[in-house]
Design a protein around this nucleic acid. Sequence first.
DNA 1: CTTGGTGCAAACATTTTGCAGCACA
DNA 2: TGTGCTGCAAAATGTTTGCACCAAG
Lengths: 162, 162
Amino acid sequence: MDLKPIATRASSPLPDDIEITEPLCAVFRMRLKEAGQKYTPERAQILDTILKMDDVFEAEQLLEKLRDSNFRVSKATVYRTLKLMQEAGIIQQVLVDSDQASYQLTYGRRAKDLLIRVDTHEIIPVEAPELRSIVQRICDQHGLTPEGHRLQIFARKNIDSG
Amino acid sequence: MDLKPIATRASSPLPDDIEITEPLCAVFRMRLKEAGQKYTPERAQILDTILKMDDVFEAEQLLEKLRDSNFRVSKATVYRTLKLMQEAGIIQQVLVDSDQASYQLTYGRRAKDLLIRVDTHEIIPVEAPELRSIVQRICDQHGLTPEGHRLQIFARKNIDSG
DNA sequence: CTTGGTGCAAACATTTTGCAGCACA
DNA sequence: TGTGCTGCAAAATGTTTGCACCAAG
């Protein structure tokens, strides 16, 4: 069994969010070229659509949004492209729901931990810098080197505030 | 014609080692009773098998282990029972792998955070009590009440330690 | 030509469900 | 006797794959 989908790796001190599509396109194209692959209109459309979505999105949401657009892309191509983007380090799989895979745009961003509202299902990326020392301590205790982590906090609206 | 004769519900007595599970059995039985449901031999066998497995296990591993035992339980019953045990607060789903759901025995235990070795795929339950204040702080900042969390730390053997 | 990409449909793997018969209060 | 539980098979779900055709160097 493969243990590849490691989401939310908080590590490298990257600048915060980069919102421009230009560079990300370039990155993707470059990574594809390195592997002898092509930056096709379908792939561009998928990347473009992802950039218009929430930070964390499900495959089904992406498919729906793509169906609405003028440029139709097949389900197979979407899944194939999502895999390519993971390999290119542009997105990462996040395990939020057991039914469906979610993905998170991670390139050029500091990976965020997630605050998940159980009442609305809203997913809010958050930062927990103190976590780093906890992770380090636990790894130290086991003689291991940390490679990343995944933190999801579940919460709901305060009873007293609304 | 090729029906695999899974033994019909034996009203036979349960294996001896079921006694070990006394307290948890009692909890499960009680919860079932509250909901007008029964503590059947199949359910006892599933609980018993889970207690013999790693803290975190996949459905497939459980099915396999059950197939090996003398007391056969169908796949459908296993999945139905896993759901009941979740409702009873005995086990929890953990999302480790995108392919398959994993479950963790949680009743009467504290450790819910996981240290996952990316080199061996070993899963080690750990404690991170300091996390509580982090979780609380993040929820406070968003006006939310914490309901739980999920922390998975990915790590591998130290390079310098052999 | 050769290589890679696409859409479609079929295949896949995991999990759920409909149903007829069994068990037990 | 009724209600719940079981096994089986079929269905449902999300994802992957085989294949024929297309596009670009």
